Simulated scan of single mutants.
Amino acid sequence: MKTRITEMLGIKYPIIQGGMQWVGHAELASAVSNAGGLGILTALTQPTPEDLYQEILRCKEMTDLPFGVNLTILPTIKPVPYMEYAEAAIRGGVKIMETAGRSPQDFMPLFKANGVRVIHKCTSVRHALKAERIGCDAVSVDGFECAGHPGEDDVTNMILLPAAAAKLSIPMIASGGIGDAQGLVAALALGAEGINMGTRFVATKEAPVHENVKQAMVDADERQTTLIFRSLNNTARVFRNAIAEQVVEIESRDGKTDFADIQPLVAGARGRANVLEGGDIDDGIWTAGMVIGLINDIPSCQVLLDRMVSEAETIINKRLVGLCG
C-alpha cells in the first residue's frame, strides 16, 4: 500500500498509532513500527523532557524503523515546558512529530530547521486548513467517533473526511472509529491517505495496560462509550463505566457545572493507577472510541496490521472491483 503518507514517513503500511497518554510507551510504539506502521511515543506521558529523551533512546533499542513523538499542547494550570519536550525529541533524533491541541505554529521554526515532519491532529476542516497554512506536512482529521477530545462540532468521519479532502492539498490521515480492514478501505475511499488508530492499539498484546482493560474492550459494543465535559465545552469520549455515569449525571443538573465537583472523579492520576495499571475498569476515567464495538480479539501489533492490510486488499481487489465488472 503506497500513499503519500507511506512515502513521506518511510513506512510500509499507511497505519499510524496515535499518541495516547499513559499508553504511548516504547513497548507499543516499537511494536507498531516493527509491524510496518508508525509508532508514536507520547511526550507528556514522561514526567520531564529528559525522561522523554531517554524513552526515545529506549525505543531506538527496540526498532530501527521510523517512529514519532506526540506533543499535545493544552492550556494548563501548572505550566508545561512544551518547548523543552520538543527540543528533547529533536535531540533524540526524532523526525516525525504528531501535534495536537493548540496550533503548533510557535514550534514550526524549530521543527522545520531540524527536518522534522509535522502531522497536526484536527477536529474540523477549518483547523486542518490552518495547519496547512502554517506549514504542517499532513493533518490527522478526527471524527466525532474518536476517543478523547472530538471537538465541539459533532461531525462524523463520513462527512468530515471528504469535506476536508476537498479543500486540502497536503495528505490527510483519518482518525476515529477505525479498527479493521473495512475502516481502512473506507478511509481511503473518503480521501484519506492513511489512518490513525488509538483505541484499537490499546487492545493489543504489546499495549502497556492491564488485561482487564483490553478484555473490557473485547466484551463491549459500540454503545459502551459516553461523552463527558459537554457542559464545559471540552467534550471527551470515554468508556462508559460507573465513574463516567456519575460525571454525566452531575453535568446534567441545572446550572453550569463546577469542575471542582467532578475533578476527583476524572483525575488522570486516578484513571492511570486504578484502571490502566490496577485493572479496575469502574474506578476511574479512561478514554475509548466507538470503535470498541468492532474489537473482538487482542492480537499482536504484527498480526493486527498484517491482517488489516491483507483483508483490505481483498475488499478492494475482489468485492469493490467486482461491483464494476
Rank of each mutant, 00 (worst) to 15 (best):
G135D: 13
F239R: 02
V185C: 09
P171Q: 06
L161W: 12
R223S: 15
P264W: 02
P162G: 04
G183I: 05
T235Q: 10
L190S: 05
S169G: 09
F201V: 09
E145D: 04
I170F: 04
T204S: 07
L232T: 09
P150E: 10
I173M: 08
N241T: 07
G255M: 10
L232E: 02
I170L: 08
L129D: 11
R223M: 14
N234G: 09
V248I: 10
A260S: 13
T226N: 05
E132Q: 13
I228T: 07
T225W: 03
L168I: 05
Q263F: 14
V247F: 03
A260N: 10
A242V: 14
N196R: 06
A192Q: 08
G191W: 00
R253P: 15
F229C: 07
L161F: 10
A260L: 11
N196V: 08
L129Y: 01
I134H: 00
V248K: 01
I243Y: 00
K167C: 15
V238M: 01
A147L: 07
E211F: 00
T199F: 03
Q182C: 12
I243V: 14
N196T: 01
I178R: 03
K130G: 11
H210P: 01
S140N: 07
Q263R: 14
D219R: 06
A216T: 01
F201G: 06
T156V: 12
S231D: 07
S252Q: 15
